[in-house]
């Protein structure tokens, strides 16, 4: 009888037949698989195809294969070489990176503060972190316009310190963009990190201290390794959408502060150049994947 497949098997407390189990597994995996194929894989392939097409005279898509869009993206445009698009792409990455870093730097003290509160007040603090999710990002960003306006204390203080001219607002500009970005993405960083910090084994912090570790070493050797799962998730869900962000830069950055997200949005709306928009989108996806791979190889994720 050796080698004969058992007719019945026990699986998680159920006695069942192998083929039934396989059917069940298939039934459970098929819907998400279909979903991903229809709504992610196929559109991405469409994006690749679109990026190789050209823009017609009136903004329509002309399905003639041409690498023009890729060339243009890399700087070989109609009017000689220009690094504008590449510059915007790398600036987007830079802004996303700095945003992520600031979020990490703020999320650690924030989550430690929340975790060390007594259980009742902890809920209150968590709600404070979650509340921004209840408001649309456009609305929240417009709120910053009001807060940073020329007549309110923040702008007045900055003017008093000589950082901006008297009577002007704290926007548009880099400062306002980062403020908007960080306030948008901090909850994305803080919530996954909180999940890790909550399960922190504090004995390890004391052990490190007992073994002569400095405060910095306590962080790098006892806190960081323990909170890495939450930190990794936080970095991904912050960095990836931050790369594609266009609302915040649109409202707080002014015309001069363009990121790849704004550029893509422009191509699909004002410029009516869908093929070039598709090429830019692909470039964004590839850059994001490369950065993630770099993080991974450096053990950040």
């Amino acid at each position: 009888m050796a080698g004969k497949r058992p007719k019945f098997i026990s699986w998680r407390g159920d006695v069942t037949q192998p083929y039934k189990l396989r059917l069940k597994a298939l039934g459970l995996t098929l819907p998400p698989l279909l979903w991903l194929t229809l709504l992610l894989t196929l559109p991405c392939l469409g994006l690749v195809a679109l990026s190789l097409a050209t823009r017609g005279q009136f903004g329509e898509v002309v399905w003639t294969f041409s690498p023009d869009n890729i060339k243009r993206l890399l700087g070989f445009g109609h009017f000689g070489w220009s690094s504008d698009f590449l510059y915007i792409l790398f600036r987007s990455m830079w802004v996303a990176l700095i945003t992520t870093l600031i979020c990490v730097a703020l999320a650690y003290p924030l989550t430690f503060h929340v975790v060390t509160r007594p259980p009742k007040t902890r809920v209150f603090w968590l709600i404070l972190i979650i509340i921004p999710f209840w408001t649309n990002v456009v609305v929240r960003t417009y709120a910053w316009l009001l807060v940073l306006g020329p007549k309110l204390p923040p702008a007045k203080l900055a003017a008093f310190l000589g950082l901006i001219p008297e009577g002007s607002a704290l926007y548009p500009g880099q400062f306002a963009v980062f403020l908007g970005m960080v306030s948008t993405f901090l909850p994305f960083m803080a919530l996954p990190l909180y999940a890790s910090v909550e399960r922190l084994n504090w004995d390890l912090l004391e052990a490190a201290r007992d073994l002569y570790a400095s405060r910095v070493q306590v962080f790098t050797k006892a806190i960081l390794p323990q909170t890495k799962p939450g930190l990794s998730v936080g970095i991904v869900v912050t960095f990836v959408p931050a790369m594609a962000m266009f609302v915040v830069t649109d409202i707080l950055g002014g015309a001069k502060y363009m990121l790849i997200g704004n550029l893509i949005q422009q191509q699909f709306t004002q410029a009516r150049d869908w093929p070039f928009g598709a090429a830019l989108s692909l470039a964004l996806i590839i850059m994001t994947l490369i950065t993630m791979a770099l993080f991974r190889s450096r053990q950040v994720l």
């Binding site: 084994n201 004995d203 390890l204 004391e206 052990a207 490190a208 201290r209 007992d210 073994l211 002569y212 570790a213 400095s214 050797k221 006892a222 390794p225 323990q226």
Partner: peptide, 27 residues
């Protein structure tokens, strides 16, 4: 604690789970 010539064996042992035994002892 980091400035005292006193070391502790914790009840939970508090070994660093991400470090090998050598690294734990060398900490």
């Amino acid at each position: 604690a980091s400035k005292r010539q006193i070391n502790t064996v914790f009840q939970s042992y508090a070994l660093f789970p991400h470090l090998k035994i050598y690294e734990n002892v060398a900490f």
